[in-house]
């Protein structure tokens, strides 16, 4: 379980988050939705300690982690797949995966096998440089690299960005399956509200740094006002 209480973040004069609070439950997917600039990425970066908040707290399994350094938060089992995926292009697929496993106690050989089984395409390309992968393959690699350390929480920042609809659908299916199998806490930041709401259990909607809705995914999906004003989903 991961949550934030009254979280506020400022960049100079700009307030990126204004008193954001919510909880993401273990074994469920929480979608964080909102337009560009709503503060979604800032939220994830604050949770993983890359940004220190002006006020408020981040809690992980009842423990306050607000002031822990990023690397310690990662070692506790919070895996953050950043926007643009953060795959190291100069590394091979296998080197990227190994890097993900180093900070944990996981047996690297076993971990690699598990990820190759989960994402067969990575196994086929294990000796290739990540620079040669397609967008979808890079997303798989970033996910595999995060999962290899057996995390408890998975923070995904715009995983569907730049992916074809079919690939996105497949990816969302994988996320749902992983969440259920490994009882992960998934925080899914998406601009693509439609795809995200399809798999999410719960949804939080942000608007210029503040929470405007925090409800079951189905309820958010059914709310016409939210759909129209904040999610950009037109009625069909």
């Amino acid at each position: 379980m991961i949550g934030v209480q009254n979280l506020s973040v400022s960049f100079g004069a700009v307030q990126a988050l204004r008193g954001v609070s919510f909880q993401a439950q273990t074994g469920s997917i929480t979608a964080v939705l909102g337009a560009n600039g709503a503060g979604k990425t800032t939220l994830l970066r604050t949770i993983s300690g890359l940004i220190k908040p002006a006020s408020g707290d981040v809690t992980f399994d009842e423990k306050t982690i607000t002031n822990e350094p990023t690397e310690d938060i990662a070692r506790m089992g919070v895996a953050h797949v950043p926007e643009g995926r953060g795959v190291i292009a100069e590394f091979t697929v296998e080197e990227n995966l190994r890097l993900g496993a180093l900070a944990s106690k996981v047996n690297i050989a076993e971990g690699l096998e598990r990820q190759y089984a989960q994402f067969p395409v990575l196994g086929q390309r294990r000796k290739q440089f990540a620079a040669t992968l397609s967008g979808g393959e890079r997303q798989m690699l970033a996910m595999g690299r995060a999962l290899i350390a057996n995390p408890k929480v998975l923070l995904l920042d715009e995983p569907s960005l730049g992916l074809a609809p079919l690939v996105t659908a497949e990816l969302m299916g994988t996320i749902k399956q992983l969440c259920a199998e490994q009882s992960l806490t998934v925080l899914l930041v998406e601009q693509n509200a439609k795809s995200a709401l399809r798999i999410a259990d719960h949804a939080v909607v942000l608007h210029v740094g503040a929470v405007v809705a925090d409800d079951a995914a189905a309820a958010v999906a059914a709310d016409t006002r939210l759909r129209q004003y904040y999610l950009g989903l037109n009625e069909q």
Binding site: L50, E71, G86, I88, L99, A103, S104
Partner: peptide, 23 residues
């Protein structure tokens, strides 16, 4: 392993930290 972490810290320090590497 050390070399891998050293290279990662040089190439992409932020990503390395997100993976728990003590950059």
């Amino acid at each position: 392993k050390l070399g891998l972490q050293l290279r990662a810290s040089a190439l992409a320090p932020e990503v390395a930290r997100l993976l728990g590497v003590r950059v």
